[in-house]
Design a protein around this nucleic acid. Structure first.
Lengths: 183, 183
DNA sequence: GCTCTATAGTTCGAGACGCACTATACAAGA
DNA sequence: TCTTGTATAGTGCGTCTCGAACTATAGAGC
């Protein structure tokens, strides 16, 4: 365990949380799981799921194995060290304030017409909303056969619901903003 | 004009928009102007205001001069090339979807108690709200002596108002989420 | 076997980030 | 005048993040 010391970023914890939920996962599994849960609150480009686990493994937070046939995919699991680090982070009170970025608002700042900038936005958020509602339904189907008390998926469900509420709110705000940018 | 060609990012346009509004500005001016307008929609660390203008100047989008006394600060203005690039971007319809990141929600995903995670958040947003309302008031005082039709500050005002609405909404959402995470 | 499409994985260079630090201005008190 | 304090202003640099462009494998249907 030649654990090179690295800085753990929020994205590191995202990967570790996902792994805690899934048990063992390939980068692709992680990518999919993120899309179906916290993507709305922590967007991560897919290449990160190939790079970050390798980085975490090198530092001893994950263990790695390789499939012997086919694509010879890498499978990761949390080590004890990883679990510990994750728990410590999750239980620490200090949390960075949330951030919002919207290129459209910058264009408005630069003088663009809000109506034009936000024309397609409502639909985008409506599509996202439908997608999330689908995930939530799937999640609830899958949960049925499990033991009562089984709660590996509880976090995923809470964040999905929050994501759904978030999308609904965005749809409303955008409509209000288009109607009356200085209200 | 040894214009090295660079990629213009959204942050580049943020800097250029600010410069268009201010006319001429030092990095520090840019930093302050951002804080009082679009910070909520495009957070930028302060070091960027020293690095990015230099990069843009090298590529011919800004011109640079240096104060001769004191801190010998650099002052930037948009070149014609810069104005053009900015206009083109502002008028282009394609706009990246907005992004939201919230480390707290990740902690909830990882199993943390929403009540604990979001305990101080409401206050944070309330403070931010008050800050923005102050900026808006200042902006409106300053606008009084200007010519009617003068609208360099209109974008700033619109984004400030949107920022204020955003903070109000966050305060509400957080309260609702704490009360009932799975509503 | 071939071809199409979905799925899965990789490389790499440029940009973004933020800690830690340095420097200047200016006012108040000793 | 000298020192000290504090707000203002600027910098260096290593690490992390991003995303375009690309490659590879699997499985379905002919």
């Amino acid at each position: 365990m030649k654990s090179k010391s690295i800085r753990l970023t929020t994205t590191s914890y995202a990967v570790m949380s996902l792994l805690e939920m899934l048990g063992e996962a390939t980068p692709y599994d992680l990518k999919q799981a993120l899309e179906q849960s916290i993507q709305n609150f922590w967007p991560v480009p897919h290449t990160t799921f190939y790079e970050e686990p390798a980085r975490l493994a090198k530092a001893g937070y994950l263990s790695q194995s390789q499939e012997s046939g086919g694509r010879r995919r890498k499978r990761y699991t949390l080590t004890d060290h990883g679990h510990e680090a994750l728990r410590e982070w999750a239980n620490s009170p200090a949390t960075a304030p949330s951030q919002f970025r919207d290129e459209g608002m910058l264009k408005v700042f630069a003088g663009a017409d809000p109506q034009v900038v936000y024309a397609g936005r409502g639909d985008w958020h409506r599509a996202k909303l439908a997608e999330l509602e689908g995930y939530l339904e799937n999640l609830r189907m899958r949960e049925l056969p499990e033991e009562p008390g089984e709660d590996r998926w509880r976090g995923a469900e809470a964040t999905l619901i929050a994501g759904i509420n978030y999308q609904k709110q965005m749809i409303e705000s955008i409509e209000r903003f288009i109607e009356n940018p200085s209200g």
